[in-house]
């Protein structure tokens, strides 16, 4: 991409203090640190959907939380439309907050249980001064239409709605600010498969009609494949492979991506001889030396245990961080 990206994240680092044991404390040992993000860089262009995929604990959500200022990164830079998100103050910060909206996984927790749907949807626009008090109802109706909910739900509280309907309300509320970027953190993972498809289609429509950019975080490859233009595959706080979704999913270069694709359940269960991924993801308290995937990689060699792999570049901005770059099975059916 030649134009400057709308949102860029540069060498983001974030670790959390683990709970110190009493014995450790008495011995003067420092509390263990959990590494959530280790040198993560990514960019998001205008009208682009970036998918971030990885197992739980890979640091996907931490990226979202750092971008939306819920979690302060230890190091690294987040720039939105030319402004440092963490340096911004006052009016500039309010502008960034308006333009960057987040949608969460749990549609039951994301809405104030004591506020009517109509008020919840219009409130952000009121607070940011986009509309006056008298415009609230009209805006709520317009957005309910937009996300495909009947206008009558404006009077209800979230309690009366199903999970899918609540997620639509959460989307309507995010749209109220006319944001430029929506960050959806596992936004469909808690929903039934059929409802999931409806919400994904809604996201697709919104992207088309409102020229939004979006970061879509999910552990479900099918969801990412459905929506994302580009994908970043994360493993233990680091991006291991990135590129156009079609390229990455059809011809994965990193063994981890290939294993994820293989582990993806297909309708017609094709049994493969080798297990896709052996063992558990290592603890984020003790990240393996060298390539962090070496403990589970079928292709691991000595150098994989000694040094971090450099980026290997392929066509169309497709990159993978792997020493070996084995010849991997291609996938066409995801």
């Amino acid at each position: 991409m030649i134009e400057t990206p709308l949102l860029s994240v540069t060498s983001l680092h974030k670790s959390f203090a683990g709970r110190a044991s009493l014995v450790g404390l008495l011995q003067g040992k420092p509390a263990r640190r959990l590494t959530a993000l280790d040198d993560v860089s990514l960019t998001l262009g205008r009208n682009e959907v970036l998918g971030i995929v990885g197992e739980s604990g890979s640091g996907k959500s931490t990226i979202a939380r750092c971008i939306t200022r819920l979690e302060k990164p230890d190091r690294g830079e987040i720039t939105f439309a030319g402004q440092d998100v963490w340096q911004a103050r006052g009016a500039k910060l309010r502008g960034i907050r308006k333009d960057l909206q987040m949608i969460y996984q749990d549609p039951y927790g994301a809405l104030n249980p004591r506020m009517s749907i109509g008020r919840a949807i219009a409130e952000p626009a009121l607070v940011h001064g986009l509309i006056g008090k008298d415009g609230a109802r009209a805006l709520a109706y317009e957005l309910l239409d937009r996300v495909g909910l009947p206008r009558s739900v404006a009077e209800l509280t979230p309690r009366a709605l199903s999970g899918g309907q609540r997620q639509r309300v959460a989307i309507a509320r995010a749209l109220a600010l006319k944001p430029r970027v929506i960050i959806a953190d596992e936004a469909v993972s808690a929903l039934d498969a059929s409802v999931q498809a409806q919400i994904l289609n809604l996201f697709g429509e919104l992207m088309r009609d409102l020229s939004l950019s979006m970061i879509f975080i999910s552990h479900q490859l099918s969801v990412i494949a459905h929506l994302a233009d580009r994908v970043a595959v994360m493993y233990l706080g680091r991006i291991v492979e990135t590129g156009a979704t079609a390229d990455v999913f059809a011809r994965p270069r990193h063994p981890y991506t290939a294993a994820l694709l293989k582990a993806h359940p297909h309708l017609e269960a094709r049994r493969s001889q080798t297990p896709a991924l052996a063992g558990e993801i290592p603890s984020a308290y003790a990240i393996p030396e060298g390539c962090r995937f070496n403990t589970r990689c079928r292709y691991a060699e000595t150098r994989c245990r000694l040094s971090d792999p450099p980026a290997a570049a392929f066509a169309h901005g497709h990159e993978a961080w792997c020493h070996v770059l084995p010849d991997l099975e291609t996938h066409t059916d995801i």
């Binding site: 819920l70 249980p113 004591r114 952000p124 607070v127």
Partner: peptide, 26 residues
């Protein structure tokens, strides 16, 4: 740590608004 409170923060609401309008009724 409930999401609707975090959400109120990412929506850019002021701290008094988050505390008194969103948290207190609950």
């Amino acid at each position: 740590r409930r999401e609707f409170i975090l959400n109120a923060e990412t929506l850019g609401y002021s701290a008094p608004r988050v505390v008194f309008v969103h948290a207190l009724p609950n």
